[in-house]
């Protein structure tokens, strides 16, 4: 959390951008779940640089990750779903995010709206399109698939009714060990049921109350983390056979420091202005231990966090088999 004063290391200017912009999530030598929400688009300094100035973050992996997403969607169309009552919310998400991107990246992007006719230009993709809000056929694959080609974030839309939130639409190709298709239609408590500790610590119910009270237009964010072997974005339940076995061998792999990545999700919580639905964006950042180790404060904090993390949390995060090896390597530098 942000209660610790973070000072950027004077040598950090020499580090590559992927490290300077990385949203390093640990403020101290221990980590526990918390409702660590804060207002969105506030620059968060780290020992290596800063992150978080923009709602939609675009980095050097932009085109690669969008290409990866397209492949995942071709292989498995269950990664996108829109229940019929969520159409208004999807259009609301699209217009909200495109206009936010146009404001944040005026050199490469622009968004104009007259009534329901919109024009969007994205110079990074050499793209210019015109579409009509509310008319799903005005974008080739519909508004949600289109939004998924413009931002690196996974997109989840929750409807608010009967005093809770319902996961009723989304496009999720970079899930960290969960299944979007399985969770569609579930409510907030059902979705979070498997997470250890959060029920006992009332974190889920507090988070739910907080989200229900957000007013349209309000934007907050939080971070979450786990670890991933290889620069693999799609670690969903659906592809578990492809990536799960690596967890048992990585601890003894001499290439562990290059292969093992800290996976940080910058999650945005946005109450959409016109539909009132909650937009939950998950932007995944991966950084290998070798890069973490180039920032002395990160190396130490992460090493201690991994060593101290209680077993139930390490088990849930899927890192229990190799967290000691990772911690030892980091702390031995």
């Amino acid at each position: 959390m942000s209660s610790t004063i973070i000072e950027t290391d004077p040598d950090a200017a020499l580090l590559p951008e992927r490290i300077r912009r990385f949203p390093f999530p640990f403020a101290s030598d221990t980590y526990r779940y918390s409702a660590n929400v804060e207002p969105a688009t506030k620059t968060a300094p780290t020992e290596a640089g800063a992150w978080g100035a923009h709602l939609v973050d675009i980095d050097e992996h932009y085109l690669d990750e969008l290409a990866e997403r397209a492949k995942v969607l071709t292989r498995d169309p269950s990664r996108v779903n829109v229940l019929p009552h969520m159409r208004t919310a999807v259009w609301d998400a699209l217009t909200t995010l495109l206009s936010s991107m146009a404001e944040d990246y005026p050199d490469t992007m622009s968004f104009h709206r007259e009534g329901n006719i919109c024009r969007w230009r994205n110079g990074l993709q050499n793209l210019e399109v015109e579409f009509t809000v509310g008319d799903d056929s005005s974008l080739p694959e519909g508004p949600l698939r289109f939004l998924g080609t413009q931002i690196q974030d996974d997109i989840i839309l929750l409807d608010i009714r009967e005093d809770t939130l319902w996961l009723d639409a989304g496009l999720v190709t970079f899930a960290a060990d969960w299944s979007f298709a399985f969770d569609v239609g579930m409510n907030f408590l059902e979705i979070h049921h498997p997470v250890p500790r959060v029920k006992e610590e009332r974190i889920t119910s507090r988070a739910e109350q907080f989200l229900l009270r957000l007013q349209p237009g309000e934007q907050f964010r939080r971070t979450n983390w786990t670890m991933t072997i290889g620069r693999r974005m799609d670690t969903s339940t659906e592809t578990y056979p492809e990536w799960g076995p690596d967890r048992t061998t990585i601890a003894d792999d001499p290439a562990m420091p290059e292969k093992l990545h800290l996976r940080v999700e910058v999650q945005h919580l946005i109450r959409l202005p016109h539909s009132g639905a909650l937009l939950f964006l998950v932007r995944t950042h991966l950084l290998p231990l070798t890069d973490i180790a180039r920032v002395p404060a990160w190396r130490e904090k992460m090493g201690h966090v991994l060593a101290e993390l209680p077993d139930d949390m390490a088990e849930y995060k899927g890192i229990i088999r190799y967290r000691k090896a990772a911690s030892d390597w980091l702390l031995a530098r």
Partner: peptide, 12 residues
């Protein structure tokens, strides 16, 4: 005063 959410949920 350390603070984050300013909405009575984060506890900071």
């Amino acid at each position: 005063i350390p603070n984050m959410c300013r909405k009575g949920i984060c506890g900071e």
